[in-house]
Design a protein around this nucleic acid. Structure first.
Length: 481
RNA sequence: UCCUCUUUAGCUCAGUUGGUUAGAGCAUCUGACUGUUAAUCAGAGGGUCCUUAGUUCGAGCCUAAGAAGAGGAGCCA
């Protein structure tokens, strides 16, 4: 008799003579009812023990968290909470769980406490649902790109270029930290290091992805990314997973179309395939929100929010239009913003983004054509506007509750313009010779974007802290597990 | 990095003006009960009050320094 999963047993029609199942005990009620979970679904299966006929010492070992093997008969349940249950014939404890010390109790825990017990937190309903969704979203990402003719490219994790400008980097070195080889001027001599030069963990696969876009046409990367920023927020990690498509012969408008279509596709996928987990998280969130004052509650449930994104077009607004809206909005006029918007050229703070998304448009917003001087060197320069202001073909997609979900741009394909920009920003041409080669040999319009995978998981699961949507979060002062 | 808050039982938290033996709910254990849905009822055990230094006759409470965690800001994805 082969063992089945809880998901298989619960989804099957009718009763079964002989079933075998293995899992972990969630609760053991009235010395008779074991709620068993094996991770295959948010739901438990109820195993009914006729305790008069079982050894008392064995029943004592059925504690929260214990791994057990049950065989018996799958029958219609006499109780109300479930349609089927297993009448237990044999029961083996595969692994005991000491109830005095097992940290996961059959009660509510705070996410902070569970974070400190991250190795066990997926034994709770919320975290098992979040991580199944994470897995499912991850699959949906690959599925989307695969079905749309993209090639999956593995960009290097150790990078030799430090010109990406996406943030502080983690150094990678094999040198002795206490006694490194030195140059005559006292600086560390990286020529003697493993790679013969300074190397770092990647902050973005974009530049390398561009090289493949300029040969394979449509590519994407989906891998770990590292930022050594000392960011202490609910939206930042030092190690996170980023999705970065890059497409040749595609302009900024095409880039926006791609990003929007992509988001809608992966969200549709989980709506269809992760219904039970989403319903559980939806329910959890609604109970959470009941504790909040009315004004802070959202007017849509989790599933409604996801459906809303799938069913509605993202609002596309140029930076210049956004500035006009912000300049004339109530919080700006009443000086409620911490940073008041006075003139064109100001960088948007998260309070402004939040106003646009959550108050003004009330839907995902794509902002594009940002001032050139607040964006990266590789973004395609537009012709100056009527007032002589310079913008680049950059776009950010802003989501309610999350903020920036996507950042992307059309890339500067003109060699002379790119060189000039790099010179102005003091970026060494020699470092990026290969990047410049793309503009020398067969250059073409191309575009791409980066999407923080964890932020997508946050939006989909309704979790408020990015540390709760990745198995083992890496943040400043924390690399436990 | 900056600002604010928090740190007391396994967990979530009370703890009055500085004053006798530091409390509650849940969890755990023991017993009762046994078709329960976070079962119920009765009882019991469980404390480095984050650390260090200080003020005081006396500190969970006051002062200083430090540590850890959370929220917000900045940066960004």
């Amino acid at each position: 008799m082969t063992s089945k999963t809880v998901a298989e047993l619960l989804s099957q029609d009718g009763t079964l003579q002989d079933v075998s199942i293995k899992g972990w005990v969630r609760t053991f009620r009235a010395n008779r009812f074991i709620a068993l979970n094996d991770g295959s679904t948010i739901n438990n299966i109820q195993c009914v023990v006729d305790f008069e006929n079982f050894d008392e010492a064995l029943l004592k070992r059925i504690t929260t968290g214990a791994a057990i093997h049950v065989t018996g008969e799958l029958v219609e349940s006499q109780g109300k909470g479930q349609s089927v249950e297993i009448v237990v014939k044999t029961l083996d404890v595969l692994g005991d769980s000491d109830p005095e010390t097992y940290p996961i109790q059959p009660k509510k825990h705070t996410f902070e406490f569970l974070r400190a017990n991250a190795h066990l937190r997926t034994r709770t309903n919320t975290f098992s649902a979040v991580m199944r969704l994470r897995s499912s979203l991850s699959f949906a990402v690959h599925k989307y790109f695969n079905e749309n003719g993209f090639n999956y490219m593995h960009t290097p994790i150790v990078t030799g270029s430090d010109a990406e400008g996406a943030g502080e980097m983690f150094k990678v070195t094999a040198l002795d930290a206490k006694n490194p080889p030195l140059n005559e001027d006292g600086t560390v001599n990286y020529k003697e290091d493993f790679f013969g030069k300074e190397t770092n963990l990647t902050v973005s696969g974009q530049l390398e992805a561009e090289t493949y876009a300029m040969s394979l046409g449509k590519v994407y990367t989906f891998g770990p990314t590292f930022r050594a920023e000392n960011s202490n927020t609910t939206r930042h990690l030092a190690e996170f997973w980023m999705i970065e498509p890059e497409v040749a012969f595609m302009d900024l408008a095409g880039n926006m179309d791609l990003a929007e279509d992509f988001m809608k596709s992966v969200l549709s996928y989980v709506l269809e395939h992760n219904k039970e987990d989403l319903e559980f998280l939806d329910d959890r969130l609604q109970k959470e929100e009941e504790k909040l004052p009315q004004a802070q509650r959202s007017d849509m449930s989790l599933i409604e929010k996801i459906k809303f994104v799938v069913d509605n077009n993202f609002k596309r607004v140029s930076y210049t239009e956004a500035i006009d809206i912000l300049r004339n909005c109530k919080p700006n006029k009443k000086k409620k913003f911490n940073y008041l918007i006075n003139e064109w050229g100001a960088d948007l703070q998260s309070e402004h983004e939040r106003f646009l998304v959550e108050k003004h448009f009330k839907c995902p917003v794509i902002l594009f054509d940002y001032p050139a001087n607040i964006k990266a060197f590789y973004m395609r320069l537009n012709e100056p506007d009527a007032e002589g202001r310079e913008t680049v073909r950059a776009m950010d997609i802003l989501f309610p509750g999350i903020g920036e979900m996507v950042g992307g741009s059309q890339r500067e394909e003109r060699l002379d313009v790119l060189k000039e920009k790099m010179k102005a920003l003091d970026i060494d041409e020699k470092e990026l010779w290969w990047y410049l080669d793309l503009r020398k040999y067969g250059t073409a319009v191309h575009s791409g974007f980066g999407l923080g995978f964890e932020r997508l998981v946050m939006f989909t699961t309704g979790m408020g802290n990015i540390r709760d949507v990745i198995p083992y979060p890496r943040t400043p002062q924390n690399a436990e597990f």
